[in-house]
Every structure is written in structure tokens, then in C-alpha cells.
Design a protein around this nucleic acid. Sequence first.
DNA 1: CGATTTAATTGAACGTGTTCAGAAATATGA
DNA 2: TCATATTTCTGAACACGTTCAATTAAATCG
Lengths: 240, 240
Amino acid sequence: MRMPTQAEKKSTMLKSEATRARILESALAIFRERGFEKSTMREIAKAAGVAVGAAYYYFDSKDAIVMAFYQRAQEEMAPSLDTILSEAKTLEARLRGLIEYKFEYFLPNRALLGALSGHVDPTHALSPFSEETAAIREQDIAFFQRAVEDSKVKLPSNIAQYLSRLLWLYQMGLLLFWVYDYSSRRTRTQILFDKTLKMILIALRLAGLPFLRPIHRLAGELLDVIYEKPSARPKKEGQR
Amino acid sequence: MRMPTQAEKKSTMLKSEATRARILESALAIFRERGFEKSTMREIAKAAGVAVGAAYYYFDSKDAIVMAFYQRAQEEMAPSLDTILSEAKTLEARLRGLIEYKFEYFLPNRALLGALSGHVDPTHALSPFSEETAAIREQDIAFFQRAVEDSKVKLPSNIAQYLSRLLWLYQMGLLLFWVYDYSSRRTRTQILFDKTLKMILIALRLAGLPFLRPIHRLAGELLDVIYEKPSARPKKEGQR
DNA sequence: CGATTTAATTGAACGTGTTCAGAAATATGA
DNA sequence: TCATATTTCTGAACACGTTCAATTAAATCG
């Protein structure tokens, strides 16, 4: 006769939530151990103590589990990225802070990140360029927008409007290199990061030079084409 | 008692070769129609009039069929690319020639190219960066090497040694963009090609300027790290 | 409480890429 | 010609991601 209390509602909601979390954690543990491809949904379900159907009740697909990981990562990193941005003042320090923090955060799941960044096919759900990852991508780009915003960098406006997206792209490239960097302690990535960052900052400083005007024009037009809202593309029906 | 004549040997060799070809052609036809993912090996085998096992007798995997296509494409294009290089004299004309020819050649199989270029994961067989595609890649880079060779472009030697590889990379980027360019008549790619090529040529001309020395140094060191022979990476065992 | 609706869970079954033991076809060698 | 090896081919079987009809557990409501 009586209504369930708020606490009860919450706790039952949490039970379902707990199952979901258990499946996710089991999956991530197995992914970490065997890699994404070699892990099976049956294994994951068994490790989580449920039938395989239950895993699909909570996650649309194996890929979707990786998406959930990615999503959660983004949420978990947000506060720290926030602090980093407010504490660092120069563009260099901010970029270094953002990107280094991500390396640190993703280190235990480095291989799993490969399942995400290994595709450039924008019709593949897990591609960093897909519709499915668009929300996360935009969130992430916003951090770079903030990194740029009150920094002293002066760029022609036709290019400036794309700077955050370009820096995000730069970061994706770095992460990609990092995921497949098997040098000891990933020194290659470290060097790459160091030198490319320097180059970018020099380039941004140089970009003010007047004799580069024709390049500015070209670059601006170029970026307009690249980032133009793409016309409707055929939906992939049976992606796996 | 008598030995088979040369002609007979040849014709029986050709019979096996013909089966292989039939399977490849059936596969490509189906890939073109349905796309790579939605095509099944059973379909392909049936279309070629063989059992599915036979397809695997000739090709190690579904991916391997795409590799065979890629390989054949490279062979078929070679003579034309050769002519293009010898007829065009400037770097611009050569690059334009090479790349435009590839667009033309791949046009009927544009989607199939996506199966190749959609991965950046260098451990994935079909990635343009994988060991499996290394031979083809080197062959292809050689064309860019020739495009650069007796052109008038002057670069610091620490960068010049990487130029062909960078131009190859540029081409891969263009092809990737092209594969997923759904604008009408792929105008976006055309514009992108046009403007980026211009920018590259300007950049190469500018690169001689003395005050860019610090950038040269950085860029050279950078490229050394990127193209360094990577240390042994873990082999993927069960790639699909 | 009891009835009914909704949420959660099961596991068999499907279509897929791939493997493999063996059959058929062909080549080889006396 | 005939036995034996080699090449070519078959299709059932396997493991996988995924689906779904059915079942159980939980929530809702009179």
C-alpha cells in the first residue's frame, strides 16, 4: 500500500546500476589483460556473473562498452583538466598540462585506447571522428578552446576560429602515436610531444608575420572546406 | 610415359590461377556492391562457384583479398605513374599527376579503399602503416622519391631525406578524405587537394629562408624520432 | 495481499570469419 | 599403366558477436 521511500527507489536503481558497473569493470579488466579483440563477450559475462544476454541488456555492443569507458574517462578527467586550465596561464603550459594529464590517466588502459583511436573511418562507431563520439569530442574540444581563449596568441580570425579543433586533432595524433609507441618508457612520444609543441608555438608566433598573408588566406579557405558541415553521408547499417 | 608439354603445364597452372582470379573478381564485385563489411565469404565463394574452403585455400582471410586488390592496383598503376613522372617536370605537376591518377584509378572501388585506409592501427594487417602493407608502401613511396629527385626543391638535408615519405603521407591523407567525401563530385576533396598542394609548394619554397633555421633543426630531429626504426612491437596473434 | 505491468536476466540460436579432416583431381615416376 | 604424392577443393564444425523468445524478479497499483 505504501510508496517506496526515496532511499529504496535509489537503492533498487543502484542495484541495476551495480550490475551494469560490474559488467563494465569485468570487461575493462579483461580488455586490459587480453586486449580488446581477444576478449569475448562470453568471458566478460561470465566474469561479471551474468548471462551473455545481460551484457547486451546493458550495452548495445562490445564497442559500446569501449564507448562507455571513453565517456566515463571524459567525465572523470574533467575536474582535473579544469584545474589545470585555471592554474596554467600560458598556452604552452595549458597544452602541456592537458595532454600530459591524459597520458597519465589513460596509461593503465593504453591498449584499450587503441580500440578507439585505431580507426579513422568516420562511419565506424569507435572512430574519434564518428557521430557516436561527437558529443565527447565536442566536450574535449571545449577544453582546448578554453586553453586558447585568454592566451596571448593572435591569429587571423579566419584561422583562429579553428585553432581549438586543430589542437584537439594534434592531441589525437599524439595519443595515437603514444598508443603504438613501444619504445621504453615511451620516450619517442615524449620527444615527439616536446618538439611538436615547440614547433606549434613557434608557428603560432610566426603566424602574425605580414608576409605570410597569402598562406593565411589559403589556410583559412582550406579549413573552411575541411570543417564544412559534411553533406549527409550514407548510414552504415550493419556495423560491428 | 610422356611428360606433359610446357603448354600443358602452363595451362594447368593457369587453371589454378584462373580459380584464384575468379574468386578475387567475385569478391571485388560483391565488395563494390555491398561494401566490404556486408559481403560474406559464403557469398563470394558461391559467386565464384566454389566452396568456402576454396576461397581460403587461395586467400588467407577476407582481409587478404583486399590486400590482393591493393597489390594488383599498385602493379597496374605502376606503368602509368611511371609515364606521368617522366612527362611532368615540376614537382607540382608530378604530384598532381600521381595523385590525380590514383583518384581516377580507385574511383570504381572507392569504398573498398576505405577497408584499407580506415585503420591507422599499425598492427592491423590492412592499415597503410602495417608490416603487411610495407612492401607496397615502399614501392609507392619510391614514386614520390622520384617525383622529388630532380626537381628544383632545395631543403636542408636533415629534412630532405624524409620528403618523399611526408608526401606519401600527404597523399594517404588526401585519399582518406576522398574515400569519405560525400560532397557531390567530391568537390571538397578537389578543393582540399588544390589548396594543400599550393601550401606545400609555398612551404617548400619558404623553407630555404635562413631565419627558419631553428625550425629546420626541430623538424629534422622530430622526423628522426617519428621515422626511427621502431623497436620490436608485440605481434598481434589473432587478428581478423 | 493479489494482479498486472515493467525491468532484468537467461541461454539457445543465428550469421559471421575461419579451420580442418578428408575427398577428389591432378601430377609424378616406375 | 598403376601406385603414390601433390595440389585443389569440399562442407561440416568452431568460436565469435549478436538477437530474441521465454522466464524470473521487481515494481506498481487497487
